[in-house]
Design a protein around this nucleic acid. Structure first.
Length: 961
DNA sequence: ATCCTCCCCTAC
DNA sequence: TAAGGTAGGGGAGGAT
């Protein structure tokens, strides 16, 4: 991509090569930006400017562009990026913060990411006050009034002051009319201009309001949690149909991911694996932690035992000293440390809650122990269903195998909750709660019965991340022989540290844990051993807030009493099977021969059990991890009624997977679709609200000829697989897309994609489809009624052929198209044609092993691909403005580009942005001639097409008479 | 034997 | 109400 880029730059801009985007202005702007990034790609550390001199940001939560990108921008332009908020942080960047969080961030400036982006675009540091996410009057009256007003009139309107602050004031009141969105009447409401001006620079607030409003339009039946102040009533209208809070909603995916503990757990795990790899890459080989440790050791005087530094360790309980003698034993072999924060989520959550000190506390979404009873649910039935299926599977597995099997009772989590009690899960609970029998993963309904005094605290995902960074940063100051396990847990090869600082493992642990406590306010436990297994078991013994070194001489005895379920790799299922064999601890396990273990549990599993039972573990630390798959799946809130809804969701997932692949800089050669399907006879209404209930899991995969990160291809492959399975959409309970057989791109590490280059990258490969569509509309004047997807595809593709000879078509795009064709051919060769033109036009597919011809309905091309728009609204607005003002008549190429971008916004379900852009364009074109207005009509038409595909409805846009 | 696909299991 | 994700390992059974 970089090569192409420079070629383009040399060629100049007047050539309509598809890169000229929205006219000469665009090209000039972009090549300038690209130039910057090319330079930057070559030398990451080089500074482009010092715009952000003296600015230190901390990114809180999800932003566009993301934290990584903002970090890069900051570094590039002389600023500082903090992974967590420190005293030196000058600004917090956020797009969306709950009020409680804003309150926590009292004094600091919470600024929208557009401040950073716009400052770079402007080449100078803009006034951040215009980008404040919340002004001092967070719940300002204007907004309140605004809400009341619309609610009283049952009308939703959009404000013209949505125009970003940096815009000139050419907006006029006309906007107010044209942007009106009706809810249930045809009347539009204009709000007072004065009020709008009050709001003018509070983009965050206004946009949030808008987001909700736009979503409430009938065309996009959405339900977004309203964040209005109490008393404002629009939210009431929303709750009229509460059952719609499913994956059908455009915002579902982000809202779900934003609240899913498991999602955060996973992504943070991956994140810190990457972080360690990056630290290793960037390391200069200096480890200040070792110096600190040596200093401490020196100052702790003659006494070498741990009592030397009372201050440091008096927080720790007796566990700290439990095998104090160990420290005198020299350790000839490798020393592995396993370190793990104690009940991580709770610890982090309790940092600012001294009032809860000593109380049993759990982190959960539950607000109380009430669970609305819904018609058709039957928890006992579901529980019985799970039990029976488990037994059936067990029998299947045991058939053909020898062994006397005891019937062991298997507990279900549903056992201890009554019909109306909360099924919200406990993500983490502290040791006070554990004493009462509360466990992680338990339903709140169960937990509160076991521990009536249980206090609950909310999730704080940003807090977890912040503490994790501190944890990793501190550890990385000692060594980089680290294997990240998760956000709060890692293995560390300590051999070097102990040798260099001449300390014992437990001295190091004491020092380290005190340091961690100091830095994070949370306690950690550490275990040492000569391999990861031993270290891990040692940690288990050390917990909570302790440390333990399992010495080689003690391993044998130690292992005897370890329960099988405490061995890593032994979970519910294997533990059950072992128990059924009468094996409960490692002593039992040791009595079995390797061969018999392998016979019973499989080769590898048997061997692992055999070794682990003896405390053996040959595994080396994986310090530079490379991922093997990327996936996104949702098994919550999946309630579709139509195939179209299901496919639209698959498309969102494809997009999600792609953005993760891009971040990880990988492409995949295999697409796997994972579905959860309501089991036969399982109740339609699940016990858990929006849960998946009793399901059958199905996965189907497909190999591609070429590794891809194209959302379009992935989407089509996934949908092809889904169709093939012929599942009623209403029975779907979970959907996932996984990419396997990854190819890691070696070069892109330094050539990170940027806001604009990502955007452009898509343009270059994807321009042809939308161009075709434009041709089709412009040329044939297709009627206004909605075309069926199938017909559309055929049409589009035919038109595409014709458009290939269009002399407007740029050289480069033709080239790309050829490439695409050849790519397609290679797919066919691999036996897969879902991505090919043939398939798309609906003709039977030749040489297709899996799809029979009658199944191969054309898959709607929801092209352009659903890339999350990588340009901020503000940037897009500037470009539109520049486009219209710089050209006498619109160029086709630019129309294509703009349409493409708008379509992508629709696919990414950013209707609010689409709306704003249309209003802007409409306003700018009012006094323009016919060509411009025709172009506008074309853009609208093509947008409605994609609207139909995604939402099944048109978007209300301003029109010319 | 070895590979592939479709599971299942485990861990956080 | 509730936010049941995600990566990796491995087994069974069929294809080569």
């Amino acid at each position: 991509m970089i090569k192409k880029k420079s070629k383009r730059e040399r060629r100049g801009e007047d050539e309509d090569n598809g890169f000229a985007m929205w006219g000469g202005y665009m090209a000039a702007k972009i090549s300038k930006l690209e130039e910057q990034f090319t330079v930057q790609a070559g030398k990451e550390t080089e500074h482009e400017s010092n715009i952000f001199q003296g600015i230190a940001i901390y990114v809180n939560g999800y932003t566009v562009p993301g934290a990584d990108e903002l970090k890069r921008i900051m570094i590039l332009h002389g600023g500082v990026f903090h992974h967590y908020e420190t005293r030196k942080t000058t600004h917090i960047i956020a797009s969306n913060l709950p009020d409680t969080k804003v309150k926590q961030l009292k004094t600091l400036n919470v600024v929208k990411p557009a401040w950073i982006v716009d400052s770079v675009t402007a080449g100078t540091l803009l006034d951040f006050r215009k980008y404040l996410l919340y002004s001092n009057h967070t719940k300002s009256q204007p907004r309140l009034n605004f809400q009341q007003e619309i609610s009283s009139k049952k009308t939703i309107k959009e404000d013209s002051e949505l125009l970003p602050c940096d815009q000139d004031s050419e907006s006029n009141s006309l906007d107010n009319e044209t942007k009106c969105k009706e809810v249930d009447t045809n009347t539009c409401l204009r709000s007072e201009n004065e009020q709008q001006h009050t709001n003018h620079c509070r983009n965050g607030v206004v946009e949030t309001g808008l987001r909700e409003l736009v979503k409430s339009c009938p065309d996009s039946p959405s339900l977004v949690k309203s964040k209005q102040s109490p008393g404002s009533s629009p939210s009431k209208a929303r709750t009229a149909n509460p059952s719609r809070r499913t994956a059908v909603e455009p915002q579902f995916l982000s809202e779900f991911y934003g609240n899913s503990r498991l999602h955060h757990l996973s992504t943070m795990g991956a994140m810190f694996k990457e972080y360690v790899a990056k630290l290793r890459e960037d390391s200069q080989g200096d480890f200040p932690g070792i110096k600190r440790l040596m200093e401490w050791k020196k100052n702790s005087g003659i006494r070498q035992d741990l009592g030397a530094d009372e201050d440091l360790i008096d927080d720790f309980d007796d566990e700290t000293f439990m095998n104090e003698r160990n420290k005198k034993v020299p350790c000839p072999t490798k020393t592995i440390m396993h370190i793990d924060m104690d009940c991580f989520f709770v610890s982090v959550g309790l940092r600012n809650r001294p009032d809860l000190h000593g109380c049993p506390v759990a982190v959960t979404h539950a607000k109380g122990n009430a669970s609305r009873v819904r018609e058709g649910t039957n928890r006992q039935y579901e529980r019985e269903f799970y039990r029976q299926r488990f037994q059936t599977r067990l029998k299947q597995r045991q058939s053909g195998r020898s062994g006397e099997n005891e019937e062991v009772e298997r507990k279900s989590r549903l056992d201890d909750v009554d019909e109306n009690e909360s099924l919200s899960e406990i993500a983490s609970c502290n040791y006070e709660a554990r004493k009462a029998g509360v466990k992680n993963g338990m339903f709140f309904g169960t937990a509160i019965k076991l521990c009536p005094g249980l206090k609950t605290i909310p999730y704080d995902f940003e807090g977890y991340k912040e503490v994790s960074y501190k944890l990793y940063d501190i550890l990385a100051s000692y060594t980089l022989e680290i294997e990240a396990v998760s956000c709060d847990e890692m293995y560390v090869n300590c051999s070097e540290i102990l040798k260099k600082a001449n300390v014992t493992s437990l001295e190091f642990a004491s020092f380290l844990r005190a340091e961690l406590k100091e830095a994070t306010g949370c306690t950690a436990s550490a275990g040492f051993g000569s391999n990861p297994l031993q270290a891990r078991l040692a940690t288990k013994k050390a917990k909570p807030n302790g440390q333990f070194h399992l010495l080689p001489t003690d391993v044998e005895m130690f292992m005897h009493n370890i329960k099988v379920e405490d061995l890593p790799g032994v979970g519910h299922s294997l533990a059950y099977r072992l128990h059924a064999e009468g094996i409960t601890d490692c002593r039992d396990l040791q009595r079995l021969s390797l061969a018999s273990l392998q016979r019973k549990f499989g080769n590898k599993t048997g061997e692992t059990l055999h070794q682990h039972a003896r405390g053996e573990d040959q595994r080396a630390l994986d310090v530079c991890h490379q991922r093997k798959s990327v996936s996104a799946e949702v098994n919550y809130g999946i309630r579709f009624t139509t195939q179209r809804e299901a496919e639209a969701f698959v498309q969102q997932l494809a997009q999600e997977v792609v953005s993760r692949m891009k971040q990880a800089r990988v492409r995949g050669r295999q697409v796997t679709l994972k579905l959860m399907i309501r089991a036969k006879d399982a109740p339609v209404e699940t016990a858990k609200f929006m849960g998946h209930g009793a399901c059958d899991n199905i996965s189907r995969s497909v190999s591609l000829g070429t590794p891809t990160d194209d959302p379009d291809i992935i989407y089509r492959e996934a949908v092809a697989l889904e169709r093939q399975l012929k599942i009623s959409p209403s029975d779907l309970r979970g959907v996932g897309i996984q990419m396997n057989r990854l190819v890691h791109s070696a070069t892109s590490g330094s050539a990170k994609s940027t806001v604009l280059t990502k955007f452009l990258g898509l343009k270059k490969t994807k321009g042809e489809n939308s161009e075709a569509r434009i041709e089709s509309d412009g040329g044939k004047r297709v009627g206004t009624e909605i075309r069926r997807e199938t017909g559309l595809i055929g049409e589009v593709k035919m038109e595409k052929k014709r458009s290939a000879v269009n002399d407007k078509m740029c050289q480069e795009r033709k080239l790309v198209e050829q490439e695409t064709e050849s790519k397609i051919k290679s797919f066919s060769k691999a036996g897969r044609t879902a991505a090919s033109c043939d398939h798309v036009v609906g003709s039977p597919v030749a040489g297709k092993p899996k799809l029979t011809s009658e199944e191969s309905n054309p898959i709607p091309i929801l092209t352009p691909p659903v890339e999350v728009p990588m340009m901020t609204l503000s940037q897009a607005r500037k470009l539109v403005r520049a486009w219209v003002t710089s050209e006498v008549n619109p160029q086709t190429c630019d129309v294509v580009m703009f349409t493409n971008y708008i379509q992508r916004l629709v696919l990414a379900r950013h209707l609010e942005d689409v709306d704003i852009l249309f209003s802007l364009l409409h306003r700018l074109l009012i006094n323009k001639g016919r060509p411009w207005k025709a172009a506008y009509g074309t853009i609208v038409k093509n947008t409605q097409t994609i609207m139909q595909t995604v939402y099944g409805a048109n978007l209300k846009v301003p029109e010319f008479d």
